[in-house]
Every structure is written in C-alpha cells, then in structure tokens.
Amino acid sequence: MSAVRCIDLCKTYRQGDQDIKALDHVDLDIPEGDFVCLSAPSGGGKTTLLNAIGGLDVPDSGEVWVAGRRIDQLSKGDLAALRLAQIGFVFQAYNLVPVLSARENVEFVMQVQGIASGPRREKAMAILQEVGLEGLEDRRPAEMSGGQQQRVAVARAIVSRPALVLADEPTANLDSVTSGELMTLFVELNQMHGTTFVIATHDQSVMAYARRLIKMLDGKIVGDIDQQPG
C-alpha cells in the first residue's frame, strides 16, 4: 500500500509580477516503509511538495493521498487531525517550543492527542533514551546543542508512531558529524519501526542514506532513482 501518492500535482506562487511553478504536474508514489530523499536546488519545489504531502499547503490542482486517504480537499481541522495522528514533522529550524523542556516537547503531540500523563511520560522518556538524550530530558531547547535539539524533534516526530515522517532539511544547521548521527538514527528508526521517511535535502551526504532518491528541478520530478544506501 502507498504511504504517499501524488497525482498530477500543481502549485503556482505569485512573486511580484511573476508566476512561479513550485509544483508542475508531479506524480509520485511512495510505498509504506520507504526511505526517500527529495533532492533539488533551492526553489526546486521539494519543500512545497513536502508541505503538500504533510497537509500544510494546498495544491492548486491534483490529488494528494496519505495512508490511503485523499487529503487535498480536507478542511483545516481535518488536516490538523491527520497531521496529529499520521505524520511526524522535522523542520530545518525552530523545531521546538522554547518554553518546554525536551521531555515536554516530545510529549506535546501526545498531549494534544489526549494521551494520559503516565503513559505519555513513559513513552517520552523511552524515545529520548532511544535517540540518545537520556539525562537531558529536563533541559530546555536553549540549553541544548543544535544536534540535540534535532534529536528531540526527531523523538517528537516518531514518538506517537506516525506512518510517515517528513523532514525538511533536517541537517541544514548541523555539522557533518552530528548530521551523520541524525541520519543514522533516521535509518535505524525506519528499519526498526517501518516508518516511512521522506526527507527534503540538497546535501549529498544525506542523500547517500536514502534507498530512493527523487530529483526535482523547477517543480518537476526529473529523476527517481532506487539506490543502495551508503
């Protein structure tokens, strides 16, 4: 079954007097459990595609299906519910709520989901341990390094076992060592839990971890390569 399916997706932005095609008739099918990198130069459409898949942005035309459900026509409330239940997000920056500790940030999604505090705390502690942040659970984002913050964001993204994790330039603000550790963590989580990962990046070293590399240019998919993760 497809984790993500996009059919003839189009999205145009207006910038000044110009229309910019961010997505130009994109067709895409990502099976469950896949580990995909979307690669494109800046302005190539990878973030727009990721946002459309995540229900953060609505395409002008075409269809978006996530976990067998068409989402491009859902209301804001339904999209919020879908994101809460099915999708984990890791953004490039400003990933965490500054006034919450690492544990509280991880618990945030579960709390909004309505999970009771006992199991919520247990799961958060377990996942923080899994991402190597044991002992740092009471630290606030400002007291952690960029890599640690991204790990907290990853922990939050996967803690409620979403079917799909969308990561937009997750390593952009990290050094190469931390970046490698984070990608290794993604791969482990993908293999352990079968979570589908879709990662937008223009970092070659990140692409090397993907089993499938989708290349985009000017809003179009110009390459779709299955590869052996390095």
Partner: peptide, 16 residues
C-alpha cells in the same frame, strides 16, 4: 509566529 506555526503544523487545532 513561528512557534505558533510549528504547533499548528504538529496538529494543534487553531482553538488551542
């Protein structure tokens, strides 16, 4: 603004 966007993206409803 960005935090609010983040919370909305994570699935918090506007009412929250």
């Amino acid at each position: 603004v960005r935090e609010i966007g983040l919370m909305l993206a994570l699935g918090m409803r506007p009412s929250g």
